[in-house]
Amino acid sequence: MPLTINNYADGILHGVSFEVQRGENLIILGANGVGKTTLAKVLCGLLPSDAVNIGGMIPSQTYSEERAKRINYIPAKMEVFDSYLSVAEFLSLSHFNQTISIDEALSKLNILHLKTHSCQTLSSGESQLVLTASALLHSAVYTLFDEPTANLDPTRMKMLFELLKNDTTLPSKIIITHNLDLAYRLGFDVLYLKEGRVAFHGSSEAFFDQTHLDALYGSSVQKVNNHVVVAL
């Protein structure tokens, strides 16, 4: 059940094509406004396009649990209208994977104490962790994460990194991020978008080669002690 996008184009993206096999992970990098979130929304069907195909299914034209089981998108921010919808209720909405319980998912992210809280009272970091828990309970074949660490403190960022690195619940993780060290340490394949096109799609090693980094970012991104550091 490969995920493919074939020559997709709109106002921002110009002819994007690539393929991800079930079991493969991917990091999507690129400057602000280059179209990463747009690409994610196209892939999961939120933006209609017949250029996307997951094992013979066009996500934007399918409405069923079957689509939900194939692809999921975790946005950068949680959006909940109802003032009293609790974290547990929110999570039960995407509880497709019955091999993992809501308590287990919350415990994995160290947020079991938030279970009965109303979603609207969560801080941005807490809601990001709840969203990640929902991704585990949902367990789609392909899960797109849009900047999953953007609002996290260093401790929780480290925790989420470990989780993404060691997780076996989600077959394929596609992660949009600006955190280059996260991208490097995860070691997943990298897709780099530039001016609406795929400028690089290959292994982590090839992308994080110092000469390649110099070509992309000038001298401001350096590898120090096996970490990728942004020199400010």
Partner: peptide
């Protein structure tokens, strides 16, 4: 209906035909 309490996007991603 419970899924509609979140957002269009979230409900859509659970496979719900929100428009219909």
């Amino acid at each position: 209906f419970q899924a509609l309490l979140t957002s269009y996007e979230f409900a859509f991603l659970q496979g719900i035909h929100v428009k219909k």
